[in-house]
Simulated scan of single mutants.
Amino acid sequence: MKKSVFLGALTVAGLTAGAAAAATLDDVKARGTLNCGVTTGLVGFAAPDANGEWQGFDVSVCRAVAAAVLGDPTAVEFVPTTGKTRFTALASGEIDLLARNTTWTFSRDTDLKFDFVGVNYYDGQGFMVPKALGVTSAKELDGATVCIQTGTTTELNLADFFRTNNIEYTPVPIETNAEAQPLYLEGACDVYTTDASGLAATRAAFENPGDHVILPEIISKEPLGPLVRHGDNDWGDIASWTLMALIAAEEYGITSANIEEMSAGTNNPEINRILGTEGELGAMIGLDAEWAKRAIAAGGNYGEIFAKNIGEETPVGLARGLNAQWTDGGLLYAPPFR
């Protein structure tokens, strides 16, 4: 009898948790704002500008989702999170979506009960050192002190790399990228390690970026993307297909400049379905017909967002690389809109 009561309690608890999770879309609509978790500040990815407005590659995902759901890309409350606090903020419901250069891993997907809704940047962990150190390879870092953010995949990757190559290091744990910068520049650590995109963004903020070198080794796979809580498939679908709309828009040539013209109708049924002039895709996810049009118009397609925030013409200076469209030899590939 006790066992039956216990199982019954578990079932009720599970149903209650599921009902709470499933309320995300309703909560966002009722609140009138999307609570989006971002970094505490990383140039090009997520940082307040001179007017205090959040800008960046990850910020654009938040704004696209807000545009799709609420019709307003500015209806976002940005919640800065660290490597340690980000998952608690999402699990507790403090934020609706986490868009914070977060790596999709097995344990985060399963053990932490999150759903990654896609990859918006294919990355890998690298190393940055002062040029004056004269180091040209990460394998020359025996005995180095290394600044590393706690609560991240980089901790285990770093330990694995040094162990595999039979070299020693001393970790200097830090909480945020902002904390790492002065420590690294003051020489408190010889090396700073994080995702290569993060290193490029960090270096771009230095007074003398040319005095620092990102070493050639990439020691891990870091598929970065937005995530939501387990248990709310409807909300996950909205976040996922919003990201896919940005990626597909670039593939099909839908831009912030021509989206109004294309919205009048084209000869391409896929474009028409994305922009809502054909089919009932919006209704399938509880939104109106122009949800994707608004998401794309908010900041442009994926390529426009990349170029504006982190591309080769910006201080961050990243090439598309793996993040090029599949038609250009990259890994970006949006499933069909049909």
Rank of each mutant, 00 (worst) to 15 (best):
Q181R: 06
E261S: 12
I174N: 02
T164D: 13
I219L: 04
E261P: 09
G265L: 11
G187R: 00
H212V: 15
N166H: 08
T202Q: 11
T266G: 13
N267W: 06
M244E: 15
P216V: 13
Y184D: 13
N166R: 08
P223E: 13
N166F: 10
G210T: 10
E217T: 01
E222I: 00
G187W: 07
L215N: 03
A159N: 11
E155Y: 03
T242S: 06
I218A: 04
P173M: 07
A248V: 10
T170N: 06
A239C: 13
P182Y: 05
T164V: 06
A248M: 14
R163L: 14
T194K: 00
V213S: 05
L199F: 04
L156C: 07
Y184K: 01
M244I: 10
W241I: 09
N268R: 04
W241Q: 10
T176K: 01
I219M: 03
L183D: 14
D234K: 00
A178V: 08
C189A: 05
N268W: 01
I218Y: 07
D234I: 02
I219S: 03
M262F: 15
D190R: 00
T150G: 14
L199T: 04
P216M: 13
N208T: 15
V228S: 11
D211N: 13
T242D: 08
L185E: 15
R229E: 10
I174M: 10
P226L: 05
M244L: 14
A205H: 02
R229Q: 12
S220R: 00
E260Q: 13
G198N: 00
W241A: 03
L156I: 14
S240D: 15
S220E: 12
N165G: 04
L185S: 12
N177T: 12
V191P: 05
S197A: 04
A180F: 00
T194H: 05
N208Q: 05
I218L: 12
P216W: 12
A257C: 08
P223Q: 06
T164G: 03
L243R: 01
G187T: 12
L158K: 00
D237I: 06
S220I: 07
Q181G: 05
P216Q: 14
S220F: 08
T176M: 02
A205Q: 07
P209M: 13
P216L: 13
I167H: 01
W235V: 11
G187V: 12
T202M: 12
P171S: 05
G198P: 01
N258M: 12
A196E: 10
E186R: 04
N268P: 08
P216C: 12
V172L: 15
N233H: 11
Y192C: 02
N258I: 13
N267K: 06
A205Y: 04
F162D: 04
A204D: 03
S256K: 09
A180E: 04
A159S: 14
S197T: 01
T242Q: 08
W241P: 03
L185P: 13
A159Y: 05
A245E: 10
R163Q: 14
W235H: 03
A201K: 01
F162K: 00
A239T: 03
T194L: 09
G151D: 02
A204P: 02
P226I: 02
P173N: 07
T266R: 05
G210P: 08
L199P: 09
I247L: 11
I214D: 11
